[in-house]
Every structure is written in C-alpha cells, then in structure tokens.
Design a protein around this nucleic acid. Structure first.
Lengths: 231, 231
DNA sequence: CTACGCAATATTGTCGACAATACTAGCCTC
DNA sequence: GAGGCTAGTATTGTCGACAATATTGCGTAG
C-alpha cells in the first residue's frame, strides 16, 4: 500500500481527522486490505497516517460501534472475524428491517425515486444479459439496490442503521467468505417484483417480497455453509 | 445532584473510565437528570467527574453512537430532543425488529425462559389489579417484558441493537414526553397473547402479535401527538 | 435604531508524554 | 525436559497543554 502521506493534506480536507481516518479504515477493513482477525495497532497506524493517537482512538471507537472491530481492555482492537452464526443473525435482522423499509418505501418514495430505481434495475438487467462483471453485480450491485430501497423509506434512523452499519458488515462478510452464488439472475427477478410492488404502492406486498428475497438469500447461504450443495 | 467525587473511587471500580462515565451519563440523560437539548460541556463534566477530557470524549462518542447526543463540529454535544417524527421512526424500527425477535423467541426460547417470562407477566397482572405504581408499569415494566423477548431471540446482534441502543432511546422519550396512556391493561392482554404464542412455539403468530402490539402503541402515540384525544 | 464587522473568549480538536496493564522471553526449580 | 515464576518490553489508558474554530459581545457605520 502506498504511504498514506499526511492524511491532513489529502484531497478531501473537510471533516475532522477521526471522520477521515474512520472512513479510510472502514473501507480498508471491508475490502480486506486489513485482513480479518488482524490487530489494529495504534502506534503503527498513527505513524502511517501521520496523526496522533487521540483522533485515531476515536476512529477505532467508531469502528467498534459499527461492529467492524472488537476491542479488549488493555489489549487492543482486532478486525472482526465473522462466524457463520453472526452472518445468519445479520440476515434475520436485514429480513426484518428491510422488509419494513420496503413497506415504507412503497408508501413514501417519490415518483422520481421510483423511476431512478427502475433505471438502476435495467442497468443490472443489461449486466446480467451480457454476463459482464458477474461477481461485481453479486456484490455491489445488489447492495446498491437495497441501499436505494432503504433510502426510499425516508426513515432517517433506519437509513443510518442499515447504510452506515449493517451494509458494511455485509460487504465485509462478502469479502471474507468470497461468496458468489448463482442466485444472480434469480435475485434480479426478485428485485423486479419488489419494485413492481412499490410502483403499485402495495406496501404489504413490497414487505412480503423483500422479506422473501432476503430469506431466500439467507437459506442459500445456510445451504452453502452446511456444505449441502448437492449437484 | 451530589458531587460525583472522583469516579475512579466509585464502588464499581471495574471497567475502564469511559465505560463507567458512559453508563453514568447515559442514565443521567435517559432519566432526564440532564435535560433534553442541554449542552454537554467537556470541561465541566471533566471537572465534575474528576477525569481528563480524553476518556470523557470517548464516552460522549459512544453516546453519539447510541443516538442519545448529537455533536456538531467545533461546537460540541447536546442531548437529543426527540421530534415526533423521530419517535414514529423508532416505532417502525421496533415493529420490524421486535416482531422478528418474537418469531425467533418462539423458536429458540428454553422452557425455563418461557416460565420466567410467565412469572414476570403474572407480576405485572397483579400490579395492574391493585393499580399500584401504574406509571411504573407503563414505563419500565413494559420494557422489561420486551427486553426478555429480545433476549429470548438468542440473536446477539439483535439483542445489542435493541437493548443497548434503541431501548434507551425509548426510555428517554418516555421521560421527555411523560406519556402515560391508558393502554396499560390493554397492553397487558397483548403481552399475554404474545407469550401464549411463544409457548405454543407458533413463531408466525408470535411475530404477528408482537407487531400488532407495537403498531397499536405507535398509533396510540400518533393520536396523542395529533391532539385528537376526543373524550 | 438597526445591521454589519471585528475582537475577545470559551470551547473543541489535536498532540506528545507519562502511567498502568498485558504479552514475551528467559531463567530457575522440580 | 517441562512447568511455573519473574523481569523486560511493548501496547493501551490517561493526562495536561497547545492550536484551531465557533460563539458572543461591543463598537461603529449607515
């Protein structure tokens, strides 16, 4: 990794130091640049970023609040290693929260937001047809979609919860487990059905479809974890 | 408030300083000892608790992560003032999460846990009959019940989310708004139905009942907020 | 009299150093 | 040779001081 040459002189010079270093560390952790289970050394990172340990500790504290690192007293912080049970737990939470988000989105999304969502979906459809960047769709494209639905809920607390915390954990898991099931096309169809329901302002159906979508994803993961991939 | 005389010499001398200060401040905020919207002065609190600003800032950072205070750059932290929309937002999140928690509880609670839950419920029933401490039941007793259900989900992430963050916000709101509707007896019956469903291991019904329970509570609040209390 | 600008002040943001605790390596004993 | 104890080391926890920024009050111009 290229030296992080004095974070204060970085392009985005707005925001406080903990803000910037928090974002940087979060991205580094989520994308696997800092391996799972590895130690977060305060002196080392302070040296790397050219800052003092004070702001750094605040950034690490926020990472802990997100669930991306775990801290032990007088020992330090380590990047979390997601267990399979933790993964399933997150899926259950997503099923509940995003189901509600879809319900609220059906009630509150503006026509423009829905149109944008449709165009995003059509992009995904083209990607699937051409089979380009299949892995990428699996990873970021899927989250893009869910991200928009959550935004559409217009529930600030829910947006914060999912977009600032949970989704980063999801991304971390995807990098850690490197999963890329063949659910891509199937997931795409489910996405379409969800948007259909939102467009019809059918809140009940939107929630049901979203929950089914996430539940299917969870069950898929559960099958893979059990190693029961019968051909 | 009596002087907090050197927090380091307090009874519970375990845990790090930020831990203790965080708990103290959280309780003080939630119970209204620190009024809503009031400023959290770092120098003042550091003097009061006899500690430096470093650990104090970490504690405040955690309060921010909980949503109990809001911080503005170079300005400082203030206790949140819950708006009615924020309150409704939290109810929507609770409806989703606790509904799922009830579903999981029906699947995973041990017979002993269910028995404990029953006995808690019977205590509440007696309190209602004697009409003692009506306000208390409304406030803490109700949360006790929900707390146990969430614990019964055996989903660590969900437990953390609800018990460590959201419930404190709920308590804060109850102190801020000072609400005590006449939903006590009605809520009690709903609680019973939820436990019935859990005892039957009827996960679907447990979720439906819990969601209906919280939705009713939300709708009750919405009526009061609109000032539509027709006699 | 009001509105704008500026300086004084207090608060937050950041830093480097000291103290306390946990890991580690080596030595001693059995 | 293995196990446990002890000293050393490195890391985290805490502190006080300095720098940077926002607020506040006053003075002045219109």
């Amino acid at each position: 990794m290229a030296v992080a040459r004095s974070i204060t002189s970085a392009a985005e010079n707005n925001g406080t130091i903990p803000d910037r270093v928090f974002s940087l560390l979060r991205e580094a952790i989520v994308e696997g640049d800092i391996p799972a289970g590895s130690k977060i050394s305060e002196p080392e990172l302070a040296r790397v970023y050219g800052i003092s340990r004070g702001p750094l500790r605040e950034a690490i504290g926020r990472l802990e609040a997100c669930g991306l690192v775990v801290r032990r007293r007088n020992v330090g912080a380590r990047v979390v290693t997601l267990s399979s049970t933790q993964l399933i737990e997150i899926y259950h939470i997503r099923e509940a929260l995003e189901g509600m988000a879809a319900r609220l989105a059906a009630q509150h999304m503006s026509a423009e937001e829905i149109a944008d969502l449709r165009s995003l979906l059509s992009q995904h459809g083209q990607q699937i047809e051409r089979d380009i960047d299949h892995a990428y769709f699996q990873r970021e494209g899927d989250l893009d979609f869910h991200y928009r639905i959550v935004q559409g809920s217009h529930n600030a607390h829910m947006i914060d919860l999912l977009c600032n915390d949970l989704y980063h954990l999801v991304r971390l898991y995807r990098y850690q487990f490197g999963m890329s099931s063949k659910r891509g096309p199937r997931a795409f169809v489910e996405h379409e059905h969800i948007v259909d329901a939102i467009e019809r302002r059918d809140a009940e159906m939107a929630e049901v479809m979203m929950r089914a979508h996430i539940r299917a994803s969870r069950e898929n993961v559960e099958r893979m974890l059990k190693g029961v991939n019968r051909p």
